[in-house]
Nucleic acid binder design. Structure first.
Lengths: 193, 193
DNA sequence: ACAATAAACGGAGCGGTGCTCCGTAAGCAA
DNA sequence: TTGCTTACGGAGCACCGCTCCGTTTATTGT
């Protein structure tokens, strides 16, 4: 990646800064024109830096996502398997929840192989691999029902974290807690006995 | 409510019919112009019959929502309390899941006292009261953790049902099953909030 | 210091949207 | 048939996403 010209770098940073705030307030469907306006640049400039809405989204959350990957490794080394997984999932929810509509976008990214910015997919892929390992470890430790797949768990947590913007973080937290309880329960074996 | 003129009645029915299909395919944000076009009426006609998008949504799901209220009474009379609740929640998810974006809209209706068509609020209110009674009965029977509130449970089920359109109904079903397991577990006794 | 050049900028313009408003057409009762 | 009332339809406004291209600016070589 070649060096950016000074003004380009400035504009890019300002755009990201503004976008982060606006998207938190108005959601992932916020007006891009408005973001450009508030950042003091033309609409063309925004589109040159971020050719698609998803590219912008990716740039916004990329940092947090990478942090999440790192956190997984850390938790895995310092906590009991079950605890590590729960802590990580809670962290995941806390990170994507504040951006209104982002959980939905991430789900589409996960389930729709077509859609999605390439870079974002890779970054998210890393994070999900990290989560996958946490789940496997928790299952090996019998801390989590064995029939749960990571895709399901991730989907659930993303969906639940989306609640935060409609009913407040408290509700989202309680719902997530109930889901995690369900994850702990034996589950699967019910049909057998 | 005065009788509708013959052409008005026809147009209204056709609009509802088309809207149901289009919204299932394209989601709650589908183009209203497009719906009017497909129904063979002008955009003005659509807006006269359904002054807001929510009014249209309300008319579309009103029937299903009323059915859900009735179902609650039926289940309450014929099933064990815990089973009745689970059956009803599953039904709820199956009903709102197919309309892309509807779960989100319903959550806003529930949590945002400002937004929302009045009639729809009343109809949904009835349905939620019915659900509330099912939950209370299940809790009295110790089939469901006592610390769960109906608003939380409803929110959770709505959020989970929204998964269906991104990852398919199977995933949504499994996630819901895990959540319901969590609802069954004793839960409550956790110190941290 | 000053050109030359490559890079980045900004916004007009296109086709779409939600929603309003009002002149026109159509149903209905006499 | 006449006349009244109801309902229709689409032009029009402000906004949107996104593209395209003439203009401006930063950088680099001399």
């Amino acid at each position: 990646m070649p060096e950016l010209r000074a003004d380009a770098r400035r504009n890019r940073d300002e755009l990201l800064d503004v976008a982060r705030q606006v998207i938190r307030e108005e959601g992932v469907d916020a007006s891009l024109r408005d973001i450009a306006r508030r950042a003091g640049v033309g609409i063309g400039t925004l589109y040159r830096h971020f050719p698609t809405r998803e590219a912008l989204l990716g740039a916004i959350i990329g940092d947090g996502v990478r942090r999440l990957s790192a956190r997984a490794a850390d938790l895995s080394a310092t906590r009991a398997p079950g605890e590590a997984l729960e802590e990580w999932l809670t962290d995941l929810a806390r990170r994507i929840g504040p951006y209104r509509g982002l959980p939905g976008t991430m789900l589409e990214l996960v389930w729709d192989l077509e859609a999605g910015d390439k870079d974002l997919r890779v970054t998210c892929g890393d994070m999900m691999d990290a989560g996958r390992r946490l789940l496997a470890r928790a299952q090996a430790d019998h801390a989590v029902r064995p029939d749960a797949t990571f895709d399901d768990v991730f989907t659930a947590v993303a969906a639940i974290s989306g609640i935060a913007h409609k009913s407040g973080p408290d509700t989202a937290g309680r719902v997530l807690a109930v889901y995690l309880d369900g994850l702990r329960s034996a589950g699967a074996v019910r049909s057998r006995g």
